[in-house]
């Protein structure tokens, strides 16, 4: 099975590039092949400490984790281990840079980081561009399956009016994850040759759903984004923000095209 991957991202308007706190995996673009293909996107909460790093840990782990014979709790155990290593390395680095943790950082570091996770797994045979997909989601990062210019599946948020700024997220602190464990959503389906999947963080997902609900077909526009005639992604996003069509937030979309057989 082969797919073509196009990731696009831009940080919240007014923020520096290094302050971007979404994450996606795999990191590159271009062709990917295999009997099972994994993709993930995550949105680190703006209110929280080191959320971008936590989001990166989750997407990377999703793409190497053996989901078929494991539970969410086992996934989280591995994620907590990665987080503890990252955090101790981070704190050691702060010390070495002679930049000790300030009083206002302490509560956030104790509370930990928070992030959404949306993971997609595609499985199919090597000589057919068709197969099964499964997705797992916590929070409001979204998956859309598009065939031609028709939206055939949306997950986990169904309507643009369902977004709010208080989603249940995955916490790096195990004591805060009871809600997240019960809020996990899973879905599966089938795909065919020529289908496209979009994984998006909430701001652009909300815009896309609204456009679709109002019959304006955002999928053609999104498909054209990486072509030569299209405006640069950050310029296009800036335009939507300035007309208040899009909330000012980090924006990430990865498009996965199932190449035609």
């Amino acid at each position: 099975m082969e797919a073509f991957l196009v990731p696009l991202r831009v940080q919240k308007g007014g923020n520096a590039e290094g302050e971007y706190e979404d994450a996606f995996h795999p990191p590159g673009n271009g062709k990917v092949e295999g009997a099972a293909l994994r993709f993930a996107i995550a949105d680190g909460a703006s209110e929280g400490m080191l959320s971008g790093a936590w989001a990166r840990i989750l997407v990377e782990l999703h793409c190497r984790f053996e989901w078929t014979c494991s539970s969410l709790e086992q996934f989280l155990e591995r994620a907590y281990q990665d987080w503890r290593s990252f955090k101790s390395e981070y704190l050691r680095d702060r010390k070495e840079r002679n930049h000790p943790v300030q009083w206002y950082e302490e509560p956030g570091l104790q509370a930990g980081a928070f992030s959404t996770l949306l993971g997609l797994t595609l499985t199919g045979s090597s000589n057919e561009q068709a197969g099964q997909w499964t997705a797992v989601a916590i929070g409001d990062s979204c998956l859309f399956q598009v065939r031609g210019s028709t939206l055939v599946e949306k997950f986990p948020v169904e309507r643009s009016s369902d977004f709010n700024s208080r989603p249940v997220l995955i916490a790096s602190n195990p004591a805060r994850n009871d809600q997240a464990i019960s809020a996990i959503r899973r879905v599966s389906g089938t795909f065919g040759s020529g289908d496209a999947f979009y994984l998006m963080t909430d701001a652009l997902a909300q815009w896309s759903l609204k456009e679709d609900e109002e019959g304006r077909n955002p999928w053609a526009l999104l498909r054209a984004l990486d072509t030569e005639d299209a405006p640069a992604f950050d310029v296009w996003i800036d335009g939507l923000r300035s007309t208040k069509e899009l909330r000012n937030d980090d924006v990430t979309v990865i498009r996965i095209d199932l190449l035609r057989a």
Partner: peptide, 10 residues
């Protein structure tokens, strides 16, 4: 005060 995403589990 709304300055971005606040996890509902925080």
């Amino acid at each position: 005060l709304d300055i971005g995403t606040r996890p509902s589990n925080l």
